[in-house]
Amino acid sequence: MDSDEFEPEIIAFLCNWCSYAGADLAGVSREQYPSNILNIRVMCSSRVSPEHVFESFQEGADGVLIAGCHPGDCHYIDGNYKTIRKTWLLKKMMDDMGIDPDRLRLEWVSSAEGGKFAKVMEEMTDEIKKMGPLELDGNDLSGEYDE
């Protein structure tokens, strides 16, 4: 592999009850998935606030994944429905702020889906690689502009 190739950094917020367990299973069953991902365990996918996602991008993430229990399976009953709505809003906000909304992905991974977890990670890493790095500090304050 070409060592100059862009290696994206991806933050994955995984809900404790399903997706984190799914990631665990992927590990135990020796599934291979790219090492570009930094997993962060949260109690429920709905715990992830837009602040966390924007902060991740601001701190250098090229992509963010939010993963939770399948709809209907959230351990806090309707947490993941809130996540669906929040993610929709968040993508709108990202679009307005000039970040490609596809850099944020929402997935459902149950504790039995180690294989799916690995697959999602692989797909997402590939996609973000194609998009290239997220560059956020392009504009200085003075912003030279000639008519």
């Binding site: 837009p50 602040e51 709505r85």
Partner: peptide, 21 residues
């Protein structure tokens, strides 16, 4: 820090429909 993010979270929690499952 981020007023809009807080509001987005609030809206995502108050909006909901019967039978969304």
């Amino acid at each position: 820090k981020d007023q809009g993010s807080r509001m987005a979270s609030a809206l995502a929690s108050v909006i909901g429909v019967e039978g969304e499952e």
